[in-house]
Write a protein that binds this DNA or RNA. Structure first.
Length: 326
DNA sequence: AAACACATCAACCGCGTATTC
DNA sequence: TGAATACGCGGTTGATGTGTT
């Protein structure tokens, strides 16, 4: 709309914006820029980054493809079930559904729904086609796509009655074949903010003092595989390849590629960030040793790490248990 | 091997809302 | 207070890939 009005009143040549698929060079350009400077105002991103795209296109590309932490590949059965359950109660609120599926974008979920799940639902309930609205059917969830397990049963009840009593585990964790109680017992105490909605984050059940800021983009370190105990063993960074971390020693450090990020927790309210070995990228060229409050850590490449001030954070950090993402 | 149909998904578009001036 | 601008969301499109005849 803004485009329309400005287009109308001006005869000056409007910038020629490229359309269509993004080239690897464009991707690299956008990625480098956002990682280094943050996106700020999206309309200025292509100008500053030297891209022949409009800001909207850059934003979309970043969110749906370049943003760190995205999970690629097939949807798991758990994710399918989550989508079905949430769609049943929320309808086409793809962005809200995406909040419950870490690493998945609303666009991806939407596409998956239209190309796959919708048809399966239609097949599964041909007789129900006369029922006018699905949102009143929360107490009668759709037939499962996979054989039900006790956990599935509990989860259906649990997830279809939003707001959730406990923050949902990321789907990659929920693949653990364990009873719900065990799942609850291994709920992570630290999560990427983007993996939880603000509502969930503010839920007082498990994480009484979680404070996720809207600016939290602490997702340059991606979630990885989780072992049988819920501990992260290996991680895959979509842009930088495989990295590893040592969760069990209290998040003392995370390495990825030739970068090493040392995080030292001093007490409940502070931590130190430093001892990064030098990487080839300019934005990590300066090692730093910085005393920081626990709420907010911004590193030299502009990435903001936010942590919560938890009563029991120290024990969790030092013990390693329950700490899953950083 | 070619033609066609269908499926997938990245990207665009339009609209509503929030924010800024 | 209203206009301009920016952002985010959901619907839709179209290029490309894959399967079928």
């Amino acid at each position: 709309m803004a485009m329309k009005s400005s287009d109308k009143k001006e005869t000056k040549p409007k910038p020629k914006h490229r359309k269509g698929l993004w080239s690897p060079d464009e991707d690299q350009c956008l990625r480098d820029y956002v990682l280094k400077h943050g996106h700020g105002c999206w309309s200025s991103v292509p100008i500053n980054a030297g891209l022949q795209r409009n800001g909207k296109s850059c934003r979309l590309r970043w969110i749906n493809y370049l943003r760190p932490g995205l999970k690629r590949g097939m949807f798991t059965l758990e994710e399918e079930q989550t989508i079905l359950t949430l769609h049943n109660s929320l309808g086409n609120k793809w962005s809200q559904i995406a909040l419950h599926l870490p690493g998945r974008t609303d666009n991806e979920i939407k596409n998956y729904w239209h190309s796959y799940l919708k048809k399966r639902v239609a097949k599964a309930e041909p007789a129900a086609s006369s029922s006018p609205k699905r949102e009143v059917e929360e107490s009668t969830p759709l037939p499962p796509l996979v054989p039900k397990t006790p956990l599935d049963e509990e989860k259906l009840v649990h997830e279809s009655s939003l707001p959730l009593p406990v923050p949902p585990q990321p789907a990659c964790v929920r693949t653990l074949d364990s009873p719900l109680e065990q799942a609850r017992a291994t709920l992570p105490r630290i999560m990427f903010a983007e993996w939880l909605s603000q509502d969930l984050a503010n839920d007082q059940h498990q994480n009484p003092t979680v404070d996720f800021g809207s600016e939290c983009i602490s997702s340059d370190i991606n979630v990885g595989e989780v072992d049988a105990f819920g501990f992260m063993q290996h991680q895959h960074h979509p842009q930088m390849g495989v990295m590893s971390s040592s969760v069990s020693d209290g998040l003392s450090g995370v390495t990825f590629g030739n970068e090493y990020c040392n995080l030292h927790y001093n007490d409940i309210n502070s931590c130190s960030v430093g001892s990064r070995t030098l990487g080839s990228d300019p934005y990590i060229a300066q090692p730093q040793q910085q005393q920081l409050g626990f709420d907010h850590v911004e590193d030299e490449c502009g990435l903001i790490f936010e942590y919560f001030n938890g009563d029991d954070i120290c024990s969790h950090l030092n013990g390693g248990s329950d700490v899953m993402y950083l």
